[in-house]
Amino acid sequence: MLTAQWLYGMSGCLIAALGLRTALLHACLLHRLIGINLTGAGVFMVLIAVAYRGAGMPPDPVPHALVLTGIVVAVSATALALALARRLTAEQIND
């Protein structure tokens, strides 16, 4: 058991929950998206903390690869959401 794992893992849980709260409650789309992205970041922190094995030890590379994949998936989804919002604003102004 390592202190660093605990510190980063637990704050990851906290950040994920904070992000989720905003994603559910905030009225503004941009804040919601930031909330969803921070929820993801919190989960990623948990994964990277789990991968850590101590200062002199090589970490577990598998969670690193998973997080890399997760980051790209998250940015794809954010981009699509922003494009939908842009279209929506345009539609509502045209109406």
Partner: peptide
Amino acid sequence: AWVRLLAPDVALAEAAIGAGLAGALLLAAV
């Protein structure tokens, strides 16, 4: 933090994509 946790690959991706491009996308929307 990820450099500190010996995850430099992820740190590079986070800085470039997670912070950089996602941020640029959101800023453009604002």
